[in-house]
Computed example of a mutant assay.
Amino acid sequence: MREPGKAHWLLARRNVNDPDNLAYYICFADESTTVEELVRVAGSRWAIEECFQAAKNETGLDHYQVRGYRAWYRHITLSMAASAFLLRLRQALKKGDQSATRPRP
C-alpha cells in the first residue's frame, strides 16, 4: 500500500561509455521529487560503494563473524575509523605534508 504523498519510480540509467549497459533503480520518494534529484541520488551511490569496497580491501571491513550486535558494531566502527585515517594520511602525503608520517610528542 502506498503512503499518501509518496510515489514509486523505475529509474533507468545508461552508461555514457557503453550505451548498451543499463542500470535500474527502484525509487521511493515524495511525489514532488524531480527526475534530476533522483538521478543525483542514484549517482551518489557509486561513491558510497567505492568507499565500502576500499574499506573491505584495506581494513578488513568484511572479515568478521557475526556473533552479536556489539561485536559487529565494534568491528565496523574500528574498520571505518581505520579507513578514514588511511584516507587522511593519503591526502596529506599527496600534498607533501611529511609531518603526517612522524609521531607526535
Rank of each mutant, 00 (worst) to 15 (best):
Q53M: 09
W9S: 13
R2V: 14
R90A: 11
Q53P: 00
L22W: 15
A71F: 01
S79G: 09
P19I: 15
A12G: 05
G43H: 02
G60H: 04
A100L: 14
S99H: 10
T77C: 02
S99W: 06
G68C: 10
V35Q: 12
R67Q: 00
C27Y: 00
A84L: 15
W72G: 00
R13I: 04
A100W: 10
H75M: 10
G60W: 04
C27E: 08
S79C: 13
G60E: 01
S79A: 14
L11E: 06
G5K: 10
L22D: 13
L11P: 01
R102I: 15
N57K: 00
A42C: 06
S99G: 05
L10N: 07
K56M: 10
D30A: 11
A29D: 13
R67F: 01
R74N: 14
S83H: 14
Q65L: 11
G96H: 04
E49H: 07
C51Y: 15
Q53S: 05
E31L: 12
K6S: 09
F52G: 05
V16E: 11
W46D: 08
R14P: 10
K95C: 12
G68L: 09
F52D: 03
L38K: 00
K94T: 15
Y25W: 15
G5R: 08
S99Y: 04
P103W: 15
S83V: 05
P103C: 14
E31M: 14
L89V: 10
W72T: 01
Y73K: 11
F85V: 10
Q91E: 06
E58G: 00
G60P: 04
W72I: 01
E49V: 09
N21V: 10
T34G: 04
N15H: 15
F85P: 01
L61H: 09
Y69C: 03
L89C: 06
C51I: 13
L78Q: 04
Q98P: 02
E49N: 03
E36Q: 06
D20Q: 01
Y24I: 14
L93P: 07
